[in-house]
């Protein structure tokens, strides 16, 4: 009873936020996306996936969304083009409805139970996930690390272009003198 209530609250919350993400202006839509993240992480908790819930909350709603928030603020996006043509909206909604109805059809499929070799027998979700992640999926996990690493390198490579223009202070170049740059002159008394 309580579980159902919590689910409906969170689901309604996330649906409204999701719709608002699509239909509101730049900064607001990021804020609504954070709302979606929060409510989905609540759903994760409801499902018993504590680790994922915390991860979503901390990394996504906490850190990552701030980064997203930077984007419209930094780029100083004007609000002028926010009102899209009705035709486009109608088209988008049609596509969305079509996709949704297609996906909803999947509910009619009787899901076959797969032979699950990885079970939730361990009471602690984080522990269970860790045990699977570091044993069976160790290579994939490493691969994830590689993906992130490549992303970091890629971003740096994108940004380094500006670094080229930075003027450096070359001390060595200033100090060194070669023989032909120096000229010795005899000064007469009057010049002294």
């Amino acid at each position: 009873m309580n579980e159902a209530l919590v689910f409906y609250v969170l689901a309604t919350f996330s649906i409204i936020s999701a719709v608002m993400v699509v239909f509101s202006c730049a900064v607001n839509s990021v804020l609504f996306l954070i709302m979606v993240f929060i409510s989905v992480s609540g759903l994760f908790l409801l499902l018993g996936a504590e680790f994922l819930a915390m991860m979503l909350l901390i990394i996504y709603a906490g850190a990552f969304a701030v980064l997203l928030l930077m984007l419209p603020l930094m780029l100083n996006i004007k609000e002028t083009y926010q009102h899209t043509a009705v035709k486009c909206s109608a088209f988008g909604v049609t596509v969305g409805l079509l996709l949704f109805s297609c996906l909803a059809f999947v509910l009619k499929v009787k899901p076959q139970r797969l032979e699950n070799d990885v079970s939730l027998a361990v009471a602690n979700n984080v522990k269970a996930l860790g045990e699977v992640l570091y044993t069976d999926y160790a290579y994939l996990f490493q691969l994830c690390g590689m993906v992130l690493f490549v992303a970091i390198v890629g971003v740096i490579m994108l940004m380094i272009r500006n670094g080229m223009e930075i003027k450096e202070h070359k001390i060595a170049g200033q100090i060194i003198r070669s023989a032909d740059e120096i000229e010795l002159k005899q000064l007469t008394d009057g010049e002294k």
């Binding site: 596509v95 079509l98 297609c102 009619k108 499929v109």
Partner: peptide
């Protein structure tokens, strides 16, 4: 993106017509 979505939709429809 539209091409992608249309592709996905077609595949889902095909799946529905076959399985469901």
């Amino acid at each position: 993106a539209l091409a992608m979505i249309v592709g996905v939709t077609v595949f889902v429809l095909w799946y529905i017509s076959v399985e469901v």
